[in-house]
């Protein structure tokens, strides 16, 4: 059954190194010299980096808040993370076009208040807002798992010694959650590398990401060799990061 997955991957590797069945590195060479690819590559990294960092910043307080609830309340809060998690990314992206568009909710409201309006769609802002929204649950889960695994006596001990909540957080809880944050970062970063619908729906011409470029080469220019080469690069980047994630998980015990 795993063949179902291995075989298609094999095809990608084969295609990326061959043109008309002849071995060549031409695909990779022309990609690396193509301004389009280089631009898309950096755009992808930039969007992924910013979106994952923002998602972590938004997700951390959520995880912290949930971790401090009693078990029953916690499962209620978790539903509020799980619901968006299981909502179709297409629905969420569409929702953002409705909210952020020129005739969208925010701009309509601003217009009604006679305030200046903003372009928030078909640009970087739109992609980042919707991507972050998609990534937050993925940031919450590893951080929450880490926070729940922390020894509650550490906080109590610090409290008895006179430490206030802020000091307990910055000196104990936060440093100890480092591995959870790192795991969350790698996870969200890898997921955003592969974003497809969000940049297509909310981005402008300059916000194309690697998945969209693969689509472009496959459908519009029928350049399967280039498309496969991009897929290999994407796969390789993700795999390296995931191996890193595995290392982080392995060392989690120590923290």
């Amino acid at each position: 059954m795993s063949l179902g997955f291995i075989v298609p991957l094999g095809f990608i590797f084969f295609r990326s190194f061959t043109i008309d069945g002849v071995f060549t590195l031409e695909g990779f060479r022309s990609l690396l010299t193509s301004p389009l690819f280089v631009r898309v590559f950096w755009t992808t990294l930039e969007i992924s980096l910013i979106a994952s960092i923002v998602a972590l910043a938004v997700g951390y307080p959520v995880a912290l808040h949930i971790s401090r609830q009693s078990e029953r309340v916690r499962s209620l809060y978790l539903i509020m993370v799980l619901l968006p998690f299981w909502t179709s990314i297409l629905v969420k992206s569409y929702a953002f076009t409705v909210i952020l568009g020129d005739a969208g909710l925010i701009n309509t409201a601003l217009r009604a208040l006679r305030l200046p309006q903003f372009e928030m769609i078909f640009n970087r802002f739109g992609v980042l807002a919707a991507s972050t929204n998609f990534l937050v649950p993925f940031a919450v889960f590893p951080i929450l798992a880490n926070l729940l695994a922390q020894d509650p006596n550490l906080g109590k001990a610090a409290e008895v010694m006179g430490a206030g909540p802020l000091r307990i957080f910055w000196r104990i809880t936060f440093p100890l959650s480092g591995s959870g944050v790192l795991a969350g970062f790698i996870l969200t970063f890898v997921l955003s590398l592969g974003l497809f619908a969000t940049p297509a729906l909310l981005g402008g011409r300059h916000d194309m990401m690697m998945a969209n470029l693969i689509d472009f080469y496959t459908r519009d220019t029928l350049n399967w060799n280039a498309a496969s080469a991009i897929a290999v690069i994407l796969l390789f980047t993700s795999a390296v990061l995931l191996l890193l994630l595995n290392r982080v998980r392995g060392t989690e015990k120590f923290a």
């Binding site: 610090a158 008895v160 010694m161 006179g162 430490a163």
Partner: peptide
């Protein structure tokens, strides 16, 4: 709790795992 000026020793030690012995005691 934090204003009561007490000391407490726990069964599972409750030492901060990311701090050295010195930093734990200095806390």
């Amino acid at each position: 709790t934090r204003q009561r000026g007490l000391g407490m020793v726990f069964q599972n030690y409750a030492l901060m795992p990311h701090m050295t012995v010195f930093d734990n005691i200095a806390f």
